[in-house]
């Protein structure tokens, strides 16, 4: 398993190849990117802040939970922070499993749970001022 938080961009295929998982019948990749719109103003950039060390710990917990639930052979999560622009990649989740259903469901669960638990906060930088994006309350 690889869980990484970084400012730099990533190459989804290169990242997935680096894990060299054998025996999988399915690999599912999810890449989240920066939208270029919101409800009120045009977004020129996105500033992502995080809580170093807790972010990695929480992402690892989320990945382990999904691995146990879906019997995933391996998991890769890369999440970026810092200033990003429309179209930039933000997050990569890759799951490997014996069969497609587990790979799909595991990948979906990781990205869904990550959005409610990993300590990241997004601020939209717009021509009309900066706006914190309203987040999702973690389940405690």
């Amino acid at each position: 398993m690889i869980v990484r938080v970084q400012a730099e961009d990533f190459d989804p295929e290169q990242e997935a190849q680096a894990l060299a998982v054998t025996g999988a019948g399915a690999r599912v990749s999810f890449v989240g990117t920066v939208r270029d719109f919101n409800a009120t103003a045009r977004v020129t950039a996105l500033e992502i802040e995080h809580y170093p060390r807790m972010t990695e710990a929480e992402l690892t917990r989320v990945a382990h939970e999904a691995q146990r639930t879906w019997g995933l052979l391996d998991v890769l999560v890369v999440h970026r922070y810092g200033r990003l622009h429309a179209g930039d990649r933000i997050v990569l989740v890759v799951t490997w499993a014996l069969h497609r259903k587990a790979a799909f469901r595991g990948c979906e669960e990781i990205i869904d749970v990550l959005k409610t638990r990993a300590p990241f906060w997004k601020k939209e930088i717009t021509g009309d001022g900066d706006i914190w994006i309203e987040g999702e309350t973690p389940q405690t």
């Binding site: 989240g32 992502i48 995080h50 809580y51 807790m54 999440h79 933000i90 997050v91 990205i111 990550l114 959005k115 409610t116 638990r117 990993a118 300590p119 990241f120 906060w121 997004k122 914190w132 994006i133 309203e134 987040g135 999702e136 309350t137 973690p138």
Partner: peptide
């Protein structure tokens, strides 16, 4: 301790 608003990653 860390205090913060609801998270918004992904």
């Amino acid at each position: 301790l860390a205090f913060f608003p609801p998270v918004s990653g992904g």
